[in-house]
Amino acid sequence: CHSECLGNCSQPDDPTKCVACRNFYLDGRCVETCPPPYYHFQDWRCVNFSFCQDLHHKCKNSRRQGCHQYVIHNNKCIPECPSGYTMNSSNLLCTPCLGPCPKVCHLLEGEKTIDSVTSAQELRGCTVINGSLIINIRGGNNLAAELEANLGLIEEISGYLKIRRSYALVSLSFFRKLRLIRGETLEIGNYSFYALDNQNLRQLWDWSKHNLTITQGKLFFHYNPKLCLSEIHKMEEVSGTKGRQERNDIALKTNGDQASCENELLKFSYIRTSFDKILLRWEPYWPPDFRDLLGFMLFYKEAPYQNVTEFDGQDACGSNSWTVVDIDPPLRSNDPKSQNHPGWLMRGLKPWTQYAIFVKTLVTFSDERRTYGAKSDIIYVQTDATNPSVPLDPISVSNSSSQIILKWKPPSDPNGNITHYLVFWERQAEDSELFELDYCLKGLKLPSRTWSPPFESEDSQKHNQSEYEDSAGECCSCPKTDSQILKELEESSFRKTFEDYLHNVVFVPRKT
C-alpha cells in the first residue's frame, strides 16, 4: 500500500485506493498535508475557505447554543480562536489581540433580562453583547459592586439597553466600559436606550469621564423622579442622539420631579488639616426662599486615587461607600458681607490618608415646582503625618564578641513616609551569675543571650482551647457569634421535631 494509506488498500502504491488515510483526505486521495488554498479540518480532512465560511455563517444565523462559528488559524479551520487571539470578521482569520481579548457573548432569543446578581454573573467577562440587555433589578445585597464585577467589562451592545423598574439602582456607572450601543435591534418605538419607572436612579454616568455613542435609535425617559433633566440632556449631547427624540420621548413632568437638581456650584473657602482632623468651610448658599434650606450634607471617604465619582458603590438597598454628615444651616444675616460661612470639623480620621470630599445642599421643593440647590466639586484632601507606631517583631542576635545583629519589621501604621529608623542602645553591667558559677561542674549549661522565638506554653494553649472559665478566673470563653447562636437554635429545633416524629412513629394507638 501507499505510504499515506492506513489499515489496508485495494490497489498497491495508489493513494486513492486506501481504506483510511494516515494524515489527511483531499478529493478522494490521501495526502501528507493540505496544500494551499485548503485548510486542515478536524485533523483528517482538507477543506477550502468557502466550506469553513459556510459553517461560520450557519452557526451565526441559527443562534443555536453550542454550535461553533468556525475560524481560520495556522492553516486550520477550527471552532474558535485560541487564547490571546480574536477573529477578523472580513476573512475569519485569528489575529493577536492588542491588550485583553474581546469576548463576544451571543444571547438566546436576542435579549437577556438581568433581574438578579445570579443572572448578571452569566455575563461575567463579556466585552461584546450580541443582542439586547434588559435591566430589571428590584433589590439585593452589595448590588453596585456585584454588577460592576460582572457587567463592568461590557464595551458594546449590538441591540438596545433597557432599564425598567430597577428600584435598587442609583447610577449606571457599573457599566464602566460601555462605549457603544449599535441599535441594530430596537425596542418598540425605535428606541435604543429605554429608561422607565426607576424610582431611585439619580445618575446615568459621570459624563466628564465617560463617552457613549448610540449609532441608531432614540432615547426614552419616563417616570424617573430623581433623575434630573440636565442629566438626560447631557446624554443626548454626548451620545449623538440630540435631535432624534420626539416631543413625548422625554417626559418633562415625570423626570426629576422629586430630585434636588443642583444648578449652582458650592466653593470651599477654608481648608485646614491635622493628622486626624480636617476643618472645612464653604461659601454660604440661600435659595430664593431661605426657609427652603434644610441644611447641608457632607460626604467623605478614603480615596487612594483621584478618580472618585459621587455615586460609586451606591445602591438604593443601603450600600453606600460614603460617610454622610448632616449639618444645620448657619444663622442668616441681613448683611451679605457678614454672612457666616458654614463648615464642619471632621474628626477621627487616619493620618497621612487622602480623602475625597464634597458637600451639597438639602432643600425642600418650592411652590413653583422649581428645584434649587448647590453642590461642590469633589475635592481631595490629605491629612498630615504623625509619629508612626512601633516597629514590629524586633530580633537581636550576637554573632561574635563585638557585634549584635538587630532586625525588625516595619510598623503596622507608618502614618507617613518613613525615611529612617533611630536605634538606641545602652551598655549593661555583666551578670554576677557568670562569676559565681563553678565551671568545672559536669552538665553545666552556660547562660545564653542568643534570641529564641517566643512560644506559647501548654497552660496558655489549654486556656485558649477551654470553653469555660478556669477556677483562677484568668480566662473566659469568647462570646458566641450570631451565626453560632442561630445554628444552635436550628439544631435544637431539629432535635425537638425529630423526637416528636419518633414518638408518633414508635407509639401507635392500640386498636379498641
Rank of each mutant, 00 (worst) to 15 (best):
H106K: 13
E109I: 15
G110N: 15
E111V: 06
K112Y: 05
I114N: 01
G125V: 13
C126I: 02
V128N: 01
G131W: 00
G139A: 13
G139Q: 05
L143W: 15
L147P: 01
L151Q: 00
L161E: 00
K162P: 00
I163Y: 01
S166R: 00
Y167F: 09
A168T: 14
F174S: 13
F175S: 01
L178R: 00
I188L: 11
G189N: 09
N190K: 06
Y191S: 14
L196Q: 12
N198M: 07
L201S: 01
Q203G: 08
W205H: 13
W205R: 03
D206F: 12
W207K: 13
W207I: 10
S208A: 15
K209C: 14
N211T: 11
L212V: 12
L212K: 01
G217V: 00
G217N: 05
L219M: 10
Y223R: 08
P225E: 04
L227A: 04
L229I: 02
H233S: 07
K234T: 08
K234L: 10
M235E: 02
E236W: 10
V238E: 07
S239K: 08
T241G: 08
K242D: 14
R247C: 04
N248V: 08
I250P: 08
A251N: 12
K253E: 09
T254G: 08
G256Q: 05
Q258T: 12
A259M: 07
A259F: 11
E262A: 11
R281W: 04
R281V: 15
E283S: 09
E283Q: 02
Y285T: 02
P287M: 06
P288Y: 15
L293A: 03
L294Q: 05
L294A: 06
K301V: 06
Q306V: 07
N307M: 06
F311E: 10
D312R: 12
G313F: 12
A316R: 06
G318R: 02
N320S: 07
N320F: 15
W322A: 03
D326P: 01
P329E: 11
K337G: 09
Q339T: 07
H341D: 12
H341T: 12
P342N: 14
R347M: 06
L349F: 02
K350Y: 12
W352T: 02
Y355F: 05
F358C: 02
K360F: 04
T361V: 07
T361N: 02
L362I: 13
E368I: 12
T371I: 09
Y372V: 03
K375T: 14
V381L: 10
V381I: 11
T386S: 08
N387S: 05
V390L: 14
P391E: 00
D393P: 13
P394Y: 13
S398G: 05
L406V: 05
K407G: 02
P411F: 00
